[in-house]
Simulated assay, not measured.
Amino acid sequence: MPIQIPDEYGYVLAVASSGFFVNMFHMQLTGMHRKKSGLKHPISYATEEQAAKDNNAFRFNCAQRAHANFIENQPTFLSLLAVSGLRYPVAAAALGATWMFGRVAYGMGYASSRGPQGRVFGFLVAMLAQMVLGGMAGYTSYKYIVG
């Protein structure tokens, strides 16, 4: 069976493209906390001792980790979004937008004064959306295999 791109697939593409802006948000968040911490490039993270003594260094580490976590999860998310969008473009786009929202909330929460505890809400939102997208992508793949 040939793969047909649904008319609504543009929504999927729009959500996928929004990842650029979410990545830029994480870059800005990390840069802001780097500046406050006084840590210069190429230092990737404050040491454990620096973070324990300086809240700005600790929050930089949190922002840096949130950004890294976004980058680590984005390829899997984009794959699930692209595949599930072939059969369910509007639902996939809505879940994708929810995932992006969750990733912004994750970054903001993690880099807040709450530190790692602040990431929980964003994690739950993004992970729930990603799990549903995973199920949809699996079902879409199955339907393409069996026809």
Rank of each mutant, 00 (worst) to 15 (best):
A92N: 09
K36F: 02
A105L: 15
P89D: 06
N69G: 06
A105R: 15
F25L: 07
G10S: 13
N55S: 12
A93T: 12
L95Q: 07
R59I: 00
E49P: 02
S113V: 05
S17I: 11
V104Q: 08
R87C: 04
L39A: 03
G107W: 07
A57M: 03
D54I: 06
H67Y: 07
Q28D: 13
S37L: 02
L86T: 07
A66H: 03
L86E: 05
T30A: 11
A46R: 08
Y106K: 05
T98P: 03
M108K: 11
F20P: 00
E48V: 11
N73I: 02
K36R: 15
G38C: 00
R59E: 02
G109A: 06
K40G: 00
R59K: 13
G38K: 00
H33Y: 14
Y11N: 12
L95F: 07
V104D: 06
A68L: 14
Y11T: 09
N55H: 05
F20M: 13
E72W: 03
H41A: 14
Y11G: 13
A14R: 13
C62P: 00
H41L: 13
N56W: 00
E48K: 15
N56K: 03
A51N: 05
S17A: 15
V15P: 06
F58T: 01
R87P: 03
R103D: 07
N56D: 15
F20E: 06
A94G: 13
S18G: 14
M32Q: 10
L29E: 08
E48R: 12
S84I: 11
N55K: 12
G85A: 06
A82P: 01
S18D: 09
P75I: 03
D54F: 09
H41T: 10
Y88T: 10
K53P: 05
Y11M: 12
F25Y: 14
A111F: 02
G85F: 06
G107S: 09
M32D: 11
G19Y: 07
D54V: 02
Y45G: 01
Y110D: 04
G109E: 05
H33I: 00
A57H: 01
S37G: 08
T47Y: 09
F20W: 13
H33D: 00
H33M: 10
T98A: 14
L29T: 08
F77S: 02
A82F: 10
F70Q: 13
G96V: 05
M108C: 09
A57S: 11
Y45A: 11
Q50G: 05
A93K: 12
V83E: 01
L86I: 03
K35I: 01
M24C: 09
R65C: 00
L13R: 13
Q64P: 06
T98D: 05
A91T: 15
Q74W: 15
P42E: 03
A68R: 10
